[in-house]
Every structure is written in structure tokens, then in C-alpha cells.
Computed example of a mutant assay.
Amino acid sequence: MTQPKQRLLSLDFFRGLTVAAMILVNNPGSWSHIYAPLEHAEWNGCTPTDLVFPFFLWIVGVSIAFAMSSSKADPSTHKKTILKAIKRGLTLYFLGFFLAIFGKLLNDPAHALQTVRLLGVLQRIGIVFIISSIIFLKASQKTIFKTLIIILAVYWALLTFVPVPGVGYPNLEKETSLAAWIDRGILTEPHIWASSKTWDPEGVLSTLPAIGTCLFGILVGIWMRRKDVDNPTKVAWLFSAGVAAIILGLLWDLQLPINKALWTSSYVLYAGGLASVALALCYWIIDVQGYKKFTTPFVVYGVNAITVFFLAGLMPRVLNLIQVTNPDGTKTGILVRFYETCYAPFFSPINASLVWAITYVLGFYVLLYIMYKKNIIIKV
């Protein structure tokens, strides 16, 4: 007999908070005017914005442990569950691919296919989800932990000891690292992140430690599901493990810098540790102590996380296809014109950009709240 799936309100809250933050930082009114904490680090280092994506992948791992535990206990269901995971992962990949090619395809289909970015946020989530789900189903907790350690160690060794062809020495720079060389070789420059064309922040090699981030979350999910451990012990151990991972990440940063674009091993530990501490606090406050009234806005985001992330990426692409004529005769996307008319004149540039982003988050909240009240949950 299979056990019913557990659901943590704190996990839905944490997921929703993370997705709302993703939408906030991805949709400023102007990319030229952004508060520092809402920007990514230039290269090495970590801002609050740099924690958003790893938090989400870590949460995916926790969710895998909760959603697939009953299947893991019954090997006869593994094939069905893996096929379902592959289908879901491919759906995520193609949603990301659709966002990357949308708009370009309408203007010049041939050029769009020749230059579309092959990897991205949703694509990485899909790939990581498939691989991590298979590992969870087929490996023991001890093996998952060992796999995480091996991934971090191998990736560290690849970045710091393998000479980069054409460069001659290992390095961690944007355009000359091993990760950048592999991206150019496998993806080719026309299909790499448009802002660089020489390296991709969601590239091929850096997907390996991203899987490590998800496995970190899976280990936490396994711990949180245990029936033989009381809640105070769960929280204490999770909090302690999180702090230990943060310290290890910061120590490793002295030799291997914390870097989101490279998704360095130190970054995996640092971000995973902070996520563990955050979930420990949320779990204690929400699920154990029962303080739930304040959670609704973010739970609303959490239960339809992928849906709102996709729509938030699609909406500006669609609306900016509608061009309006400026007084000087030039044409501008309607969303850009709306920002320049209704926001930019009434605030300082940086505050106008922030208010726009907040409006964007609140606007989607209205839609998600209606869906939540009607119990509409779109599962990708």
C-alpha cells in the first residue's frame, strides 16, 4: 500500500516567494536603472538576485523527494514515473525554447532557427528535473549524497586543473574558461546567450553542478519526510546543516570563487545552505507553529510557479509586438510606451524601474489569486 503524498505549506510558500522574486528581478522597467541587490553580480560574488535560481532548483529537489517517494518504494512503478518525469522535463525545455524563439520566428523564421538560444532557465530546470528524478528513484540516500560530493569535486577539478584548448591553462574567466569553451563547441556561438555569444550562464558544463543543487534539495526532502524524527529535531538539524554548508561554501570561495554564471561548487554549497536555513525557518513558523495567515500571497504564486514564470516571460514578448508611433515618428512596443508614459515621468529613473517591477508582480498576483480561489492548478 502506497503512502499518501505529504505537502508542506512552508514549501509552497518558499517556492512562491522565490518565483515572485524571479519575476521581480527579471522585469525591471529599465535594465539601465536597477538597485544593486536586484542585479546579478558582475562575475564572482553573490547578490540576493543570484540566489533566486538556485533556490528554485533546490526546491525542485525537495519537491521530487515528496512527490516521488511512494513510487521510489515500489520499483514496479519506476518506469512509469521516469517516463512521466521525462515528459515533464521535455515540456519545460520546449516552453523555454518557445520563449527564446518567440517573436524572432514571426519576423524571420530561418534566421530565428539559426540563432535561437538552446539553453536557458526553463531548459535547465527541465534537464535537471529529468536527471535528478532518475537518480532519486534509482539510488539510495547514501548514494545520492555521494553523487552530490562527486559532482562538486569533479566540477571543481575540471575548472581548476584542465587546460582550456586554445588558451593553454585552466581559468575561471568569462570567455576563456573550460565551460565557455564547451558551450562554444557544443552549442555553437549563434545558439549561446545573446548578451555574450561566447559563454552561457545556463551552459552545458555548468548544468552538472546545477544537478548537484537539485540533489542537495532531494536530500533535504528525504530528511523532512522522516516519520521517526520529531519536528524540533528536523528543524535543528536542517538549520545546522544549512549553516555548515554556508561556511563550507565561503571557505571554498577562497580557492574557487562563488559564481552563479559558472555555478561553481562553492556556489552550490553556499546557495543550498541558505535555502536550507530559509526552509527550516519557514517550516518551523508555518507548519509547526501554525502561523499561516500571512502565507497566502506567496502560496498563490507557489502552486502555479511554472505557469506564472512562463506567462511573465511571454507577456512582454507578445505586447511589444504591438508597435505604437512616437511623436518623433519612431515606433515603440506598447509595453515600453506604457512604462515611459505612466511610470518614468513620476519617479526617479531607478524608482520608476522598481515600481514597474512591483506592479508586474502584483498584476500576476491578481490572476493567480483568481486561479487559486477556483482551485485551478496547471501542472506542467
Rank of each mutant, 00 (worst) to 15 (best):
residue 115 T to L: 08
residue 323 Q to G: 01
residue 132 S to C: 14
residue 359 T to F: 03
residue 12 D to I: 11
residue 95 L to A: 10
residue 85 A to F: 12
residue 213 T to G: 07
residue 80 K to T: 14
residue 262 L to K: 11
residue 372 Y to E: 05
residue 377 I to E: 14
residue 273 G to Y: 01
residue 75 P to S: 05
residue 346 F to K: 08
residue 167 V to A: 03
residue 49 T to I: 02
residue 355 V to K: 09
residue 310 F to P: 08
residue 347 F to K: 02
residue 189 E to L: 02
residue 208 L to A: 14
residue 190 P to R: 06
residue 172 L to V: 10
residue 77 T to P: 07
residue 210 A to Y: 04
residue 63 S to I: 05
residue 355 V to P: 04
residue 215 L to G: 11
residue 142 K to Y: 11
residue 112 A to Y: 06
residue 202 E to S: 12
residue 295 T to S: 08
residue 288 V to G: 07
residue 278 A to Y: 06
residue 349 P to E: 08
residue 379 K to R: 15
residue 287 D to M: 04
residue 192 I to Q: 11
residue 245 A to I: 05
residue 261 A to K: 11
residue 144 I to P: 05
residue 269 L to M: 15
residue 336 V to L: 05
residue 91 T to E: 09
residue 62 V to K: 03
residue 148 L to A: 07
residue 320 N to D: 15
residue 53 F to L: 10
residue 8 L to G: 08
residue 30 S to R: 14
residue 3 Q to F: 09
residue 270 Y to K: 01
residue 80 K to H: 14
residue 323 Q to P: 00
residue 187 L to S: 12
residue 81 T to E: 15
residue 96 G to C: 11
residue 237 W to S: 10
residue 212 G to L: 05
residue 294 F to V: 07
residue 107 N to R: 12
residue 82 I to T: 13
residue 9 L to T: 14
residue 372 Y to P: 04
residue 279 L to G: 07
residue 105 L to I: 15
residue 341 T to L: 09
residue 306 I to D: 07
residue 128 V to A: 06
residue 188 T to Q: 04
residue 285 I to Q: 13
residue 331 K to E: 15
residue 56 F to C: 09
residue 99 L to V: 12
residue 378 I to M: 06
residue 210 A to R: 05
residue 356 W to V: 09
residue 349 P to T: 07
residue 351 N to D: 15
residue 40 H to A: 10
residue 280 A to Y: 06
residue 362 L to W: 03
